[in-house]
Design a protein around this nucleic acid. Structure first.
Lengths: 144, 144
DNA sequence: TGTATAATTGAGAATGAGATTCAATTGCAA
DNA sequence: TTGCAATTGAATCTCATTCTCAATTATACA
């Protein structure tokens, strides 16, 4: 069993919940993606492959994936909540361009340090973590 | 004229927009607050004082305040988009508790440095900036 | 100081993401 | 296998936010 599935299963069982086939499909779809996505994108992907997973189930499952630590919300791209999987990824920040919607990811070792330090200081147990900058990318600045 | 009003006016005029009395009221209300707020909270405050500013105008004005750099979106507290004014404040991060909704603000000089460095590196012009951690506060961890 | 013009406003209707309801289904423990 | 609680999908509902449009207002200029 893939590591992320193990983690998810463990999380679910710990809460008295079940790893259903729909939840597995969602998990797989989420980890097959290497970009940001929203609930609707998952729904369309399933539909295109004639796999039946309803919107309701997707909306119900995403928070479970977040709580399990496998996925996090990304900086909102537009109207919808966006997600990205984080298991096996270094924590990184985002720059999102107001002009064209482009997302630039960047890594910075210091971010991780700050997070740790702050959480320790306040006895805070982190689940999700976000460092985001909205603004204008190089190209869009020229158009202003 | 207060500094923030000057800034807002300058921003508006630069875009061929006008500083109306409604926009002034919203600006004042926003800067009279020292916590996070959402559009509805502003609306209720105006209503309580019988000042007439419609929801539509509030929803239309908040993005202008953000664009002008005076205000930014805060980590979403719940269903609604939350804001905070940032003019005259040091940039800071937030920890938001999933259990009780409490928001802990913290300052960290290194954050500002990282932001600057990253933006320079990518030629990105920042408008808004967020460092947020969702998780469980000390008290809520005990209840888990 | 009046006038033209484009920006702005409020009220209410429309939109749409996400949550909820409930009857039918399914996973799992004994 | 059986029982039961968890889960699902379809439809419905909710409610924050956006849009529409006629009436109003701020500014530039005559």
């Amino acid at each position: 069993m893939k590591k992320e599935k193990e983690i998810f299963k463990k999380y679910l069982v710990g809460k008295g919940l079940k790893l259903t086939s729909e939840r597995e499909l969602i998990l797989e779809e989420v980890f097959s993606r290497h970009d940001h996505f929203d609930a609707e994108a998952l729904f369309q992907a399933f539909r295109a492959r004639s796999e039946n997973v309803s919107r309701a189930t997707i909306y119900r499952t995403l928070p479970l994936l977040v709580e399990s630590g496998l996925v996090q919300e990304a900086l909102r791209c537009g109207e919808r909540v966006c997600y990205e999987h984080i298991y096996g990824h270094k924590s990184h920040g985002h720059m999102i361009c107001i002009g064209c919607g482009k997302i630039i990811e960047f890594e910075n070792k210091a971010l991780e340090k700050i997070r740790k330090k702050v959480c320790e200081e306040y006895g805070f147990k982190p689940v999700e973590f976000r460092f985001g900058i909205k603004g204008y990318c190089k190209d869009c600045q020229k158009k202003l």
